[in-house]
Design a binder for these strands. Structure first.
Length: 420
RNA sequence: GCACAGGUGGCCGAGCGGUUAAUGGCAGCAGACUGUAAAUCUGCCACUCUUCGAGUUACGGAGGUUCGAAUCCUCCCCUGUGCACCA
């Protein structure tokens, strides 16, 4: 099949947008030029280990870059590392990962597909699993692969090096990870592999192995690792600072609004399709005072939320966010929690209120507090309100609560529906 | 296998026979302040209960010595380092 490709300059413009590093760049240019003249598209791969059921916005930085290649007419391979997930990429880790079962991995892999197709075109994407070639690799071939590297080469990697020096354990199978990832490139005959900047070591191993197998060596394109909500650590579900692709519009919008002003600019660059020059203009406007930073952030939250949901849903999320946080009011758009009157200890039968409700219990059952003890403390800290009214007493009458009260503890609110 | 050094609350890290859910830091949560934030200040940060009080669990695991142990002893598990093994 023959494809018409945009010019080299045009392609490079899109490909290099936001990229942290491209190695070697010259080779990539040659490949692009060749694909233009031959009409044969390049093969671009990015791998993801299905170690968790959800992808988050951090992953989309890479997926967006894949889409850029897709938009240019190249073949994009979304590689699901179901076999490498058995190891778990040790990159940046100071401990060995907990092993996942085959079943967990398979289930995660399924959810990945539907999630990435919010960004990638399903028709034009080649979805592959590395179990396809890794699981069938025999002892002989595995030993041959491992023989390509030495222990000291592996220990060059910063995280292994660090763990080694700090006398932390390094499990043997972790050393195989970069080799397995590198072999993926051989199996797929990749022209380009995408990864985060933290993946450099692994990405380079693909070049090593391709050379060993007499293939042209892939170019590697690294994207920066974006920080999570805290603005300090990389976005990661286990660090609790991530925004998941599948999260509701309200959650997504709210989380985006909670990031710092500084971080907002990175999100504009890596999580939206706005052009660099437009972002610079906006930044200048904020600096000069022409644009309020909060407004810029609201736009960001809306654009991203709409990207994964819809304009309409993003608008609704924006409105209820404004009521809830800006006006500190009671928003209607709040998660509903069902609580039964029969819950153990919820109703105080002995008290003067004749069936008053223990608020600490209620807050706990409603999921706003991790324990009744914590709920008790929060009440004392004046952090709890019912239908927008702060409360300070530990027991509240059923009458005061009403049929479907909105409970709020700090920033979180829920509507309680009584059951039974 | 032998020797040595370690295993403390989400993480890091004090304590090394006895005031105490366990110093301190980070993270987290809440309040004030704001522009939703950030920064700053304050409070909280094992669980349960009828909560100005009481109880129950906690310092790798199991026992033991003590009036009393995270702190001492024994055995076991785990990690690292060195040596040995690789006839």
């Amino acid at each position: 099949m023959s494809v018409f490709f945009p010019s080299l300059e045009e392609q490079l413009d899109l490909i290099t947008k936001g990229a942290a590093e491209i190695l070697p760049l010259e080779a990539l240019k040659e490949r692009i030029t060749r694909s233009i003249s031959t009409g044969v598209p390049m093969r671009i791969k990015a791998g993801f280990d299905p170690t968790a059921p959800d992808l988050h916005l951090g992953h989309t930085v890479l997926i967006r870059k894949l889409r850029h290649f897709q938009q240019l007419g190249h073949v994009v391979i979304f590689l699901i590392g179901d076999s490498t997930a058995l190891i778990g990429d040790p990159t940046g880790r100071n401990v060995t990962r907990k092993p996942l079962t085959r079943e967990e991995i398979a289930a995660n892999a399924e959810t990945y597909k539907e999630q990435v197709f919010k960004i990638l075109d399903p028709v034009l994407t080649e979805v592959r699993y590395n179990s396809e070639w890794l699981d069938t690799l025999g002892y002989y071939d595995m030993v041959k692969l491992m023989a390509q590297f030495t222990v000291s080469q592996m220990l060059e990697r910063e995280d292994f090096h660090k763990r080694f020096n700090e006398e932390q354990p390094i499990a043997l199978h972790e050393l195989i990870y970069p080799i397995a990832q590198g072999y993926d490139s051989v199996a797929l005959k990749c022209d380009v592999e995408l990864g985060g900047t933290d993946q450099k070591f692994n990405l380079m191993r693909g070049r090593d192995l391709q050379k060993h197998f007499g293939q042209p060596q892939q170019s590697i394109l690294m994207m920066p690792i974006i920080e999570g909500l805290d603005g300090v650590q990389k976005m990661s579900k286990s660090l609790g600072n991530a925004i998941g692709i599948k999260e509701s519009p309200a959650e997504m919008y709210g989380k985006l609004m909670s990031i710092s002003d500084e971080l907002m600019w990175k999100y504009w660059v890596f999580l939206t399709d706005l052009r660099g020059s437009e972002i610079e203009q906006m930044k200048a406007d904020v600096a000069s005072g022409a644009l309020h930073p909060m407004l810029a952030k609201k736009n960001l939250a809306r654009v991203i939320t709409a990207d994964f949901h819809s304009e309409e849903l993003a608008e609704v999320a924006a409105e209820s966010w404004a009521t809830q946080f800006q006006q500190r009011g009671v928003s209607e758009d709040v998660p509903v929690v069902r609580v039964s009157w029969d819950e153990d200890g919820l109703v105080d039968v002995l008290g003067d209120l004749g069936g008053g409700v223990r608020m600490a219990k209620l807050l706990h059952f409603a999921g706003l507090a991790a324990s009744t003890g914590e709920a008790t403390r929060k009440i004392a800290e004046n952090a709890v309100s019912i239908n927008g009214e702060k409360i300070s007493s530990r027991i509240v009458s059923k009458h005061q609560l009403g049929d479907s009260p909105i409970l709020r503890l700090g920033k979180k609110s829920v509507r309680v529906e009584w059951v039974g």
